[in-house]
Amino acid sequence: MHLKIRHRTEYRYETPVRYSIQELRLTPPSTAGQHVDKWKISTPIKASSSIDSFGNYCSVFVQESPYTSMMIEAEGEVHTHDAFEFVDDAKAVSPYYLLQQTNLTEPTDEMMDYFAYSLPKNNSVEQVLKLAEAVQGLIVYSPGQTNFATTAAQSFAMKSGVCQDHAHIMLALCRASNIPARYVSGYFFAEESPNLASHAWIDFCSDIKKGIWTSVDITHACLIDARHIRLAIGRDYYSAAPVKGVRSGGGGEELSANISIAQLP
């Protein structure tokens, strides 16, 4: 598919923000399953670019003049095709590092007991997809019930969440089963599901020695395909977030995000 993506994030504040730092992971890589034809990020002031420890494109900008609103836009075109395996390069983070839980993924005893019969015995695609189906079957997709700070344990307790929560629970259970797993942020194209345009899933390491990772969409309990566009990978949402920052001042914050994905001829 040839897809055109536009992602707009707008912040408004009650009082002027005096100082802020924004960190963006809004540039998709050209990798297995996708080729980026063109991509542009627009920020209030010039951003500096780098590659982070996970190999993500990262942009950072600092605002030192007061402001009460801020707009960040990313747009471009990507060609996609079906692919669900990814091979690490020589500089990649060790899969063993991705066995560690984080504050967002730490499982509870209740979670481990509930999924005991679905936990993978090995890192085969069949076993991990069986777990994805169990997570999807329990956690009802319910926008508005959780937010970026909701933990896997909290989502499990509520039995509801969104793709981010599905991913965090899946990471918790894979890592507890001694299978390295990482969070993937990205986009999902489906004309009938515009609320899934911003999406998240996981990679699990299917061959540690060769650094091969297989991508699983827990919300759809399937391997990823040409509908998925990868943005960034990390230990959890926080380390792969498309937009995050810290600020001084501003009072209350109102955030609006709009993502549109269109298929081109």
Rank of each mutant, 00 (worst) to 15 (best):
198 S>C: 10
210 K>D: 08
74 A>W: 02
212 I>F: 07
14 E>Q: 15
60 V>L: 14
184 V>G: 05
25 R>F: 01
48 S>L: 12
103 N>H: 09
161 G>Q: 01
158 M>I: 07
146 T>C: 11
36 V>A: 08
203 D>K: 10
58 C>D: 04
246 V>A: 10
30 S>I: 03
196 L>H: 11
247 R>Y: 08
152 A>L: 05
47 A>L: 11
37 D>P: 01
108 T>M: 06
161 G>V: 04
47 A>Y: 10
143 P>T: 14
61 F>K: 11
217 D>W: 05
51 I>M: 12
185 S>K: 05
64 E>Q: 14
153 A>I: 00
220 H>S: 14
235 R>E: 01
143 P>E: 12
206 S>E: 04
111 M>D: 03
145 Q>G: 01
51 I>D: 02
176 A>K: 10
29 P>G: 03
94 S>Q: 10
112 M>W: 01
254 E>T: 15
103 N>G: 13
64 E>S: 15
9 T>P: 06
51 I>L: 13
95 P>R: 00
104 L>A: 13
21 I>A: 09
259 I>Y: 07
6 R>F: 05
159 K>C: 11
206 S>D: 01
147 N>E: 08
28 P>D: 01
123 N>V: 05
198 S>H: 06
239 S>W: 05
58 C>M: 13
244 K>I: 03
202 I>R: 00
125 V>P: 06
84 F>L: 09
231 L>D: 02
202 I>D: 05
252 G>F: 13
221 A>S: 15
54 F>Q: 04
31 T>E: 07
65 S>F: 07
125 V>R: 12
16 P>E: 03
34 Q>G: 05
243 V>R: 08
